[in-house]
Amino acid sequence: MKKTYLYWLLLPGLLFLAVFMIIPIVLTIGSTLFKEGSFTFAGYLQFFKDPYFLKILLTTLEVSVASTLLSVLLGFPVAYYISQKAPRRKGVLLALAIFPLLTSPVVRSFSWMVILGRKGLINNALIWLGIVDKPLEILYTPVAMMIGMLHLFLPMMIISLVGVLENIDSDLITAAQSLGASRVKAFRKVVFPLAMPGLIIGGILVFVGSLTAYTTPALLGGKQRVISTFLYQNAMTLNDWFSASVIATIMIAITFVVVGLMNKLSNKLNPKG
């Protein structure tokens, strides 16, 4: 009795996802392996031989790696700071970090256009200060995309780190210090390893997020393409659905490889096994 009941509860959702998500994705991946009716990797070979595509892939990876590393460098101290606060202040600080996350990415990327543009805040300030006499080209460069991505995903890093850091017993640090560890060493030997799971989850979210984001590179990248805008261009502007499918498959593959590797890493590092 219980079992059939269970299936009826799960079935509608599963069917829905199967028909509208899983089948389209599987068939899309399948369609890339056949050209004119025969099995072939030609689509992929063609892509990985194409210097234009390789450059796009490289730009995407560079931007993603840079925003991930920066999110760790900026996010860790902030998360540590938040986790040390009393509940009320912690709540406020957390809310301020979560707010941008819930705000439309269009709004957030647009705000950087205002700041980074030729007549934007930064160029105006630099000219007013006399540091430069001609506006710098910041907008529509990989740097602009990287800043946009960092702004987009840094909150994710912060909140996943707060999630682990607030559960670290402060007595542990005191204990490490009482055993003769310096504060830096106590941090490195106690706090850092315990924060690892949060760091890895945050890392996955930021990296995969940057790798696949569309709005930010579309608004801040200008003619600079990344893999997601390239997919859109192929699908909608060039109407080359075969290439778009190949790119989609490559994106899925990269995502799963990254998530898989990070999970493996986290299992290896997690002291609880």
Binding site: I25, T212, L231, W241, S245, A248, M251, T255
Partner: peptide
């Protein structure tokens, strides 16, 4: 899984099939 699959890929495959 819909959170894990790149949104742009979801959008494209849905256009293609739906």
């Amino acid at each position: 899984s819909p959170v894990l699959i790149p949104g742009i890929v979801l959008g494209f495959t849905m256009l293609k099939y739906l």
